[in-house]
């Protein structure tokens, strides 16, 4: 649907107000609303929104691989819901960023090259076994929960509104990951070993999440300085791992420059799969 066809006073079923007798999607900020408002961000704010959007987009693309492959039907739906939440966050951030360059969310998702993606290395890491996916969800959702909580105070109203919508969803992702981390950590010797292994695989990508950039200095009061989230994140993660009988692994940190467009070998394959249809059939709709 073209954004100019949307009436902001209506929900996506065309109802003015949620009816008392039928199920409605309820009222919430949608990417279409951001596009319709058309508030153009500055170049720097757009670059910042692009980073947050790329993190969610690539993690969502990674997670979507679980659909139909989860250990149980119920978990399949849970992972699918989380994947779609992340895609929703990505759509909002990319829609907003794109307004600065007259680009749509689809232009940014499907027609940028690998070196133009600004996502963190942790989100592009292999899904691995279920424990790896759960640990990655724990590490990233805890980070995003702290980030969006702080971003709600941003001087930029659109970023603040996207954060307010997203924070409740990443809170649930965090809870889901915590529940499984505790169960698998305290489960069998095999499940605990797999969780220790997952922590060792993913821990090298932690420092990159909390690395400040000059962009954050330029956007004082608008962007959240990642380093300010580290202490709370360390404390939360340590608490969960302690409850799960696990420990922070003693592994060195990897050199990551995801924010500068330098990615690991995984990224090309992720983008190839994500972008092939849009590039082969430009303008395709369904």
């Amino acid at each position: 649907m073209k954004s100019d066809e949307l009436d902001a006073t209506l929900d996506s079923f065309g109802d003015a107000l949620a009816s008392a007798t039928r199920v409605t999607p309820g009222n919430a900020l949608r990417p279409e609303d951001i596009a319709k408002d058309g508030v153009k961000p500055s170049e720097q704010i757009a670059q910042y929104a692009l980073r947050l959007g790329d993190d969610s987009l690539i993690l969502s693309q990674r997670m979507s691989h679980w659909v139909s492959r989860a250990p149980e039907l119920e978990e399949d739906v849970a992972l699918g819901n989380i994947t779609l939440d992340l895609l929703g966050h990505a759509r909002s951030f990319l829609t907003y960023a794109g307004l600065a360059w007259d680009k749509t969310e689809d232009d940014l998702a499907y027609f940028r090259e690998e070196e133009e993606f600004t996502s963190l290395h942790i989100v592009e890491q292999d899904n691995g076994h279920f424990g790896v996916t759960i640990i990655r969800m724990l590490l990233v959702a805890t980070y995003q929960h702290l980030l969006y909580t702080a971003l709600m105070e941003s001087a930029d109203e659109t970023l603040s509104a996207i954060a307010a919508k997203s924070v409740k969803e990443v809170d649930y992702h965090r809870d889901h990951a915590i529940q499984w981390t505790i169960r698998l950590g305290l489960g069998t010797e095999e499940s605990a070993e797999k969780m220790r292994h997952a922590l060792e695989i993913l821990w090298p990508y932690i420092d990159e999440m909390f690395t400040d950039e000059p962009l954050h200095d330029q956007l004082e009061g608008v962007a959240v300085r990642p380093s300010t989230l580290r202490a709370a994140w360390d404390q939360e993660i340590a608490g969960v791992l302690d409850e799960a009988g696990l420990e922070v692994p003693n592994v060195p940190q990897a050199m990551c420059k995801g924010r500068q467009g330098e990615h690991s070998e995984y990224m090309g394959y992720i983008l190839a799969e994500m972008q092939v249809l849009a590039r082969k059939h430009p303008g395709a709709t369904w």
Binding site: V23, V77, A78, H176, R183
Partner: peptide, 17 residues
Amino acid sequence: AEMAVRNARDLYTRRNE
């Protein structure tokens, strides 16, 4: 029980029910 109530949230309230 804890996971049951979460799975219920994911399966039966995802359309604002």
